[in-house]
């Protein structure tokens, strides 16, 4: 067993609230230089930057986990992780995302970058809107695509399943804490749940190396199997 460092909840420039220097290649490169072994770009309701991140991961020698941060009907944020990009795509095709257009002067730009950090487009729909799926239905759906769904930053007030529903519902054996969570809270929850700690970074400086996991093999599959318990 070896210990690996991870940060699997990072926002790239396509998320309207993230810095525009958060290009997929810059994030993966910064993650590698920070000493992370696993990294994931988990944008709000978007997977636009995952392919470039995966290619960058190969080039830099760091494992990139295909991911999305889903916002459910209840305004709950759920980090969804997959072994393969194709599974992530198939999963998102089943999600009824909102089609309301973004108003970038209020919410920010939703820019798409290529592998050379050039802007190649933008996402028109509003990524901060909720998808029309209940958080209760996500565990069942994600199973079909071999993914793992993790309620995000449950130590926070906003968009947290614990704040919004008052509990962590069935089907979520793992919960995520932000790097600002109190150690007592993390300890308490680790008695009943798997626990991960991520940055939810919207800026490069916020990427964290706090998350650690012991694995038998250095693969995304092994990482996800460990989370599944």
């Amino acid at each position: 067993m070896d210990t690996y460092r991870y940060d699997i909840h990072i926002h790239s420039a396509v998320s309207p609230c993230a810095d525009n220097d958060m290009t997929p290649v810059t994030i993966v490169g910064t993650a590698m230089l920070s000493g992370l072994d696993f990294v994931a770009i988990a944008d709000h309701n978007s997977i636009e930057h995952v392919p470039v991140a995966l290619a960058a991961g190969k080039a830099y020698g760091i494992k990139v986990v295909p991911a999305i941060e889903l916002q459910t009907r209840e305004d709950i944020h759920i980090v969804c992780l997959f072994e393969k990009y194709e599974d992530l795509v198939a999963f998102t095709e089943k999600i009824p995302f909102s089609t309301r257009p973004n108003e970038e002067e209020f919410f920010g730009e939703q820019l798409i970058f290529d592998e050379d950090d050039e802007v190649i487009g933008k996402v028109e729909r509003m990524l901060l809107d909720s998808a029309d799926i209940s958080s209760d239905d996500v565990p069942q759906l994600i199973k079909e695509f071999n993914g793992v769904a993790i309620p995000a930053h449950i130590d926070r007030e906003g968009k947290s399943m614990l704040s919004i529903l008052g509990t962590i519902t069935e089907g979520y054996p793992v919960v995520e804490f932000s790097t600002r969570a109190k150690p007592e809270m993390i300890e308490e929850w680790s008695k009943t749940h798997g626990v991960i700690i991520d940055s939810d970074a919207h800026t490069l400086a916020s990427i964290s190396t706090r998350g650690q996991i012991e694995l038998e093999e250095y693969t995304v599959k092994c990482f996800l199997d460990h989370l599944r318990g």
């Binding site: 209940s134 958080s135 919004i164 529903l165 008052g166």
Partner: peptide
Amino acid sequence: SAVMGKAPTDSAWFTIMNN
């Protein structure tokens, strides 16, 4: 989480939460 601690007994609870 807020409703649980704050909604008074025998109140009418107005919400848009569908869960």
